[in-house]
């Protein structure tokens, strides 16, 4: 069957359609289908059923979704997630941009500082939360010690309902700062140098160069960074779970922690699946925006 469709080529030419060629992609496709595609649809199916660990019970229609949107804790977790995204994403983008602008130089100091601001990104969430719990812990925490030098008492970041999410956000910003900085840096390095030479000949001020040349050139990167961070921070789990257990009073409980609690601690898999579909839709919207922006290159 090989040579029929493409008579110009020899039967084993790389461009003639041939079922045997699919053998190269088959091993990956096996895992892709069994561990991603199938669970994706199985999850949707589960969200319409009452289910536990091993089996799925009766069909309940939209019952799980109705329960979900009547659950104050779930609604609160959606609100918490948006609040967390609002706390972290703009800060990450702005500090990342500032650092990229300040450290975009070929000097040794700039290189060392870039490594310094990126190193936390390679740590696991466990180590990051361990570090930040010790920063916030009363009495011998770093914050308590620094406040102590001025004879003051540090606010109880982790246990105060008004501050707990801010504490989680601070740890997250410390952890995730490296990526936005590096993305901005690589965008800055793609701006052609002769534009700057022209600006220098025109005696443009630094501020004018920044606002008229640099910032407009990285507009698209800025949008990308924002969306990448929204997708990432929407999936908040480890920091909230390890620093505060979602407390106090669920104020730091994000959607993923709600899913974890519902599906894997209360074993209400149907409800957990429904919650994960809601999260999926939210993340899909952001991912679609990212796709549109990264494809529209001429918009630069």
């Amino acid at each position: 069957m090989t040579a029929v469709q493409a008579p110009r080529k020899p039967s084993h030419g790389p461009h003639s359609p041939d079922w045997k060629n699919a053998l190269f992609v088959a091993p990956y496709l096996f895992f892709f289908v069994t561990l991603l595609v199938f669970p994706l649809f199985w999850g949707i199916w589960l969200s319409f059923h009452k289910a536990d660990t091993f089996s799925s019970g009766p069909f309940v229609g939209f019952g799980n979704y109705v329960r979900l949107f009547n659950d104050k804790v779930f609604l609160q977790s959606v609100g918490n997630t948006f609040y967390f995204v609002l706390l972290t994403v703009p800060t990450l983008a702005l500090i990342g941009l500032f650092l990229a602008l300040a450290l975009n130089a070929r000097t040794r100091t700039a290189t060392v500082l870039r490594s310094l601001f990126f190193f936390s990104s390679v740590l696991s969430v466990t180590i990051v939360t361990l570090i930040w719990r010790i920063v916030f812990i009363p009495q011998f925490g770093l914050l308590a010690t620094v406040y102590g030098w001025f004879g003051a008492t540090a606010p109880a970041f982790v246990s105060d309902p008004n501050l707990a999410m801010i504490a989680v956000a601070m740890a997250t910003i410390w952890w995730c700062l490296g990526l936005p900085m590096m993305l901005f840096l690589s965008a800055l390095q793609q701006i052609p140098g002769d534009i700057y030479e022209a600006a220098a000949l025109d005696n443009a001020s630094r501020w004018r160069t920044l606002t008229a040349i640099t910032l407009p050139s990285i507009k698209r990167t800025f949008a990308l960074v924002i969306i990448i961070q929204i997708v990432l921070q929407f999936q908040l789990f480890g920091q909230a779970w390890l620093m505060t257990r979602g407390g106090p009073n669920n104020v730091t409980k994000p959607i993923v922690l709600y899913i974890y609690d519902t599906a894997f601690r209360r074993w209400d898999l149907g409800l957990g699946a429904a919650a994960s579909e809601v999260l999926f839709v939210l993340i899909l919207l952001a991912a679609m925006a990212q796709y549109l922006i990264s494809r529209r290159k001429e918009d630069l």
């Binding site: 199985w42 999850g43 660990t53 699946a273 999260l279």
Partner: peptide
């Protein structure tokens, strides 16, 4: 997270 619950089962 979208495939987690089903994968676990």
């Amino acid at each position: 997270q979208a495939v987690l619950v089903a994968r676990h089962q």
